[in-house]
């Protein structure tokens, strides 16, 4: 009975969630009360500029740092007090995979594999071979790209239900990046793996993300389905004479030298653009994901 209740609870709890998460370093606030939850089986792309707080948010959500405010939960458990069962269901690849440089690639996979009950040693060995990574070379002596790939193999071989990747493609060449994205999409599609990955490469998001969260200066500006962004957000341009009519709620606001105003606006609950868009001379431009990112982040 207890097992049944636990299974039911697991199904109800999101694999990863943050509630009012706040954190700071040396007096500067890095995260401002973030609320974020990943639906099971979703692929959430966390996008933001360098220093936006993506890595801090990920670490706080996984219990790798104690947040100043709020709470993170992994499979319904407090992230800071996860048990072994919860840990066995998740895999994380940090931004700079530099851990355990004194082991060879084969030793790392052997060492880590002993801790995961569902470790796929065959996959680890084959992928190491397929990605042409010398198994007996020390990790410290591998190139950054090779190390990142070893860490990705480590994460994928544990057959996680939740895969968290912090800028996984940063050190990869285009071919390796494409392979990684294919692998992630495959895992999500076939095994229902929930994926959170941070990036500032917009094309990666467009390729595999089902949802997008946009972090800017420690605030979560938007969180929606990837397919919705084109429909939901647009750039509203208002000539100088009409700038007073600009809506108060806008994701970004930029005044040009001639006094005109550009705003990133969102459709309301009825699917309508703000009133100002209907003024004479006002213009609404559709935004691609990259344009949306640049407009908001600039």
């Amino acid at each position: 009975m207890n097992a049944m209740l636990k299974d039911a609870a697991d199904r109800l709890d999101p694999p990863l969630a943050a509630h009012g998460l706040g954190h700071g370093y040396e007096g500067a606030t890095v995260l401002h009360g973030i609320d974020l939850a990943l639906a099971p089986g979703s692929v959430l792309g966390l996008i933001g500029r360098n220093g936006a707080g993506k890595s801090t948010l990920i670490r706080a959500m996984l219990g790798l740092l104690e947040p100043a405010a709020g709470e993170a939960r992994v499979f319904g458990q407090p992230a800071l007090r996860m048990d072994d069962q919860a840990k066995a269901r998740l895999a994380y690849v940090p931004q700079q995979p530099e851990a355990l440089g004194w082991l060879t690639a084969a030793q790392l996979l052997d060492y880590v594999g002993r801790f995961y009950p569902r470790w796929d040693a065959r996959f680890a060995g084959k992928t190491l071979e397929r990605w042409k990574i010398p198994p007996n070379k020390l990790l410290a002596k591998l190139s950054p790209g090779e190390r990142q790939r070893v860490d990705l193999i480590r994460a994928l071989a544990s057959q996680p239900e939740l895969l968290v990747l912090d800028e996984p493609a940063a050190a990869l060449d285009p071919v390796a990046r494409r392979e990684l994205l294919r692998e992630v999409a495959l895992r999500a599609g076939e095994s229902g793996t929930t994926v959170l990955f941070s990036t500032h490469i917009v094309s990666d998001l467009e390729r595999i993300a089902s949802d997008i969260a946009f972090l800017h200066e420690g605030k979560l500006l938007l969180h929606c389905a990837a397919d919705d962004t084109k429909e939901r957000f647009a750039r509203l341009w208002l000539p100088a004479a009409m700038s007073a009519a600009a809506p108060a709620a806008a994701l970004s606001r930029r005044r040009h030298e001639d006094g005109s105003l550009s705003l990133v606006v969102e459709r309301d609950e009825r699917g309508q653009w703000p009133e100002a868009s209907r003024l004479n001379g006002a213009r609404v431009d559709a935004l691609g994901l990259e344009d949306l990112f640049v407009e908001v982040a600039e």
Partner: peptide
């Protein structure tokens, strides 16, 4: 730093209670 060994150890199962 939480970026290196601690990033592996912090989510490694099988080590038991804190």
């Amino acid at each position: 730093t939480s970026q290196r060994e601690l990033a592996v150890l912090g989510v490694l199962p099988g080590l038991g209670t804190p």
